[in-house]
Design a binder for these strands. Structure first.
Lengths: 196, 196
DNA sequence: AGGTCTGGAATGAACGTTCATTCCGATTTC
DNA sequence: GAAATCGGAATGAACGTTCATTCCAGACCT
């Protein structure tokens, strides 16, 4: 045992509750559109308590960003079939993105909304940069195998990522339904776009 | 001359200056992130003057939205070759979007950022809806001519629009340069995606 | 064991600041 | 000179943040 800490009741899920509440509100109303006391209220804690866990509103949004960007990164890269054909890799990429967006719609919306915001700090930006570089590696590998169009990889990535985001946005607005068929169809559509 | 309005000191471009300043700031920092007195200062007018031209901050953002959405709509539709082949129509669409985005980068960023925001009023939303319906008409026309993939038109529109937005975002972040070649290349890429 | 003490965790009222908006004397226009 | 506009100080509400206080789970007594 030897537990000699004489603390009253550390945490008990409050930190998580604050992060959850902040995710919902930031994703819905944006950073500046969300008042800190509202986050605290939705998390079921006092306004002051929030500042026991996060140094500032900015620190909160950065921690949230890193949490979700990290999860997305791990979901994309963990066990990614590095040796598969480019077509199979693209399928895997699209499927994993879809899984993330379906499982965590607010996480996805939050990441998209806060992408490159001025209040993100250097570490948050570095995370983003490193993920982009990894994807770029796969794209250029596919190009060397003559499986993807030999145009600037940044162009292919921008168009593909944009298409996926557009899909999710349309779903959020109710213009389409995010069925497995819709996701499979658009996967094929975008493969046709970038394949050689 | 012949100005017969019975006002003592008419405008002199202040209204325009306010709209220009608001466009810059809203596009860069968002609605909630932009303070009204800052808009006034950048416009070179007093804070009170702004309220002589716009009833509120919300009224200002809505007017701005309608102004730019309207211009985009006119640029897309005026003299659009309704009888041309779908491929030619797609080229025209992509070219006109590009022209708008290159000529008015802040207008484009503003529209994208404030797309379906809670502070947009019913009239602003109706403008958006009506433009979507028009594009939908062209897509379904192309599908009936067996020139585009026979999948839900909303899916094709979401993916195409998303790709274009992704392109512009990548350019804004410095990942790519928006050269005529890049725009032509991506036009072809996205046509491959949606063509039958 | 039961009672008391203790110290970090939690709180929400209160603070200084910043916001959107208003007001009014100065200025401009005809 | 009358009328209307203009600008920026003034205003009250709302913001992010702090802090004096309360709370309570264990430590320490007896």
């Amino acid at each position: 045992m030897a537990q000699l800490k004489h603390s009253a009741a550390p945490d008990s899920g409050k930190r998580e509750a604050i992060l959850d509440a902040a995710l919902e509100l930031f994703a819905e109303r944006g950073f500046h559109g969300t008042a800190v006391p509202l986050v605290a209220e939705r998390a079921g804690v006092g306004a002051g308590t929030l500042y026991r866990y996060f140094a500032s509103k900015e620190a909160l949004v950065n921690e949230l960003f890193r949490h979700w960007k990290g999860l997305l990164g791990r979901m994309l890269l963990e066990g990614f079939p590095a040796a598969a054909t480019p077509r199979k890799q693209f399928h895997e990429f699209w499927a994993r993105m879809s899984r993330f967006a379906l499982d965590h719609p607010q996480g996805f919306a939050f990441l998209e909304l806060h992408h490159h915001s001025p209040y993100l700090d250097a570490e948050s930006r570095k995370l983003e940069e490193s993920m982009l570089l990894l994807v770029k590696g796969f794209v250029e590998h596919a190009q060397r195998q003559q499986a993807m169009k030999p145009i600037a990889s940044e162009l292919l990535m921008a168009v593909t990522w944009g298409a996926f985001v557009g899909l999710l946005k349309a779903a959020r607005l109710g213009h389409i339904q995010l069925t497995p068929e819709a996701l499979a169809t658009t996967e094929n559509v975008m493969w046709e776009a970038i394949r050689l």
